[in-house]
């Protein structure tokens, strides 16, 4: 290679790097900025925030928005419900899905194909909103906490993810335990379950995030019972309150209020997002692995 072409390659490389970093920095900014901005607004005085111009830092600092959220009985109750549904559903779903996966990873199981097809079909055939709605109603699950837990307790997708992992475990483990006379249930609890920790962490994260972020089931089934609504649903109510008062924003600007629906919503958003934002970076290696197991069966 002569000097000229080496030089050209160098220029190409630098140009490529510059463009690459511009795109990546823009991407990171676009992802992070709205969250920092929401945080800044949530820490700002309400009336002042309406004037606009708040970007990365609050202009008139106050914690009033957060105090108000924590004083709001509805929101506190909603947090309790959200935490309860997330914890109960995650533990229960994880255990039951793992148990089903165990039964279906046993290659000699006589009904293996039947049960597998029964569940895999549910990924493709869905009766739809109205028949499901009527079923829930007939089962007495409306205005009931358990509507968050019982429907969708076993997901075929999670079952496949866990089963794929279990298939990778050596058969000899379960076999030697069986020779010692252990029951299937004991083998599942004492031998298989502890070995599945990585995949269980992945699926637990999927379930917990889904539960934490659900609002549609609240709207559909529990909207009339204030003691059963979830955090996301309350946040949605705040959101529509903000949208609807858009016209009166001008009036509020002059009212000198410390808080406005917009700043309260910002505070509620931060509170709602906080647990997940703190948790997910630590589980990253699990979900990346889990997604590649279950995502595409290549």
């Amino acid at each position: 290679m002569n000097n000229k072409s080496v030089f050209k390659i160098k220029v190409d490389e630098i140009l490529f790097d510059v463009i690459k970093w511009i795109f990546l920095v823009l991407f990171v900014l676009a992802t992070i900025y709205p969250i920092i901005n929401t945080l800044a607004v949530s820490l700002n005085e309400g009336a002042d925030a309406l004037k606009g111009g708040i970007f990365l830092l609050p202009r008139k600092f106050t914690l009033e928005n957060y105090f108000l959220v924590f004083k709001n009985k509805n929101l506190v109750q909603a947090s309790i419900i959200t935490v309860s549904r997330t914890v109960i559903a995650t533990v229960l779903q994880l255990f039951l899905t793992a148990m089903l996966s165990y039964v279906l990873c046993r290659k000699d199981f006589i009904f293996r194909k039947f049960v597998t097809i029964l569940y895999v079909l549910t990924m493709y055939v869905n009766a739809g909103l109205i028949p499901n709605f009527l079923l829930i109603k007939h089962l007495g699950l409306t205005n009931n906490f358990w509507v968050y837990i019982v429907p969708g307790m076993i997901s075929a997708f999670n079952m496949i993810v866990i089963r794929t992992f279990m298939n990778g475990l050596p058969d000899s483990l379960a076999e030697s335990a069986k020779v010692d006379g252990a029951s299937e249930f004991k083998i599942f609890i004492n031998i298989i379950l502890p070995l599945c920790k990585p995949v269980l962490a992945t699926v637990a994260l999927f379930i917990a995030v889904y539960q934490w972020n659900s609002w549609f089931d609240t709207m559909l089934y529990n909207a009339f019972d204030n003691s059963l609504t979830t955090l996301q649903y309350e946040l949605m109510k705040l959101l529509s309150a903000v949208t609807n008062q858009g016209a009166s924003a001008e009036a509020m600007k002059n009212s000198g209020n410390m808080v406005t629906p917009a700043t309260i919503r910002a505070a509620a958003t931060i509170i709602t997002a906080f647990p997940i934002v703190c948790l997910y970076p630590f589980l990253q290696r699990y979900f990346v692995a889990g997604l590649t197991i279950g995502g595409v069966k290549e």
Binding site: I35, T38, L239
Partner: peptide, 19 residues
């Protein structure tokens, strides 16, 4: 950072979009 928005609910995301 790039995974973060996936974990936020649509309620939060649409709130951010509206803002």
């Amino acid at each position: 950072v790039s995974y973060l928005p996936h974990f936020l609910s649509w309620i939060i995301v649409t709130g951010i979009v509206l803002d």
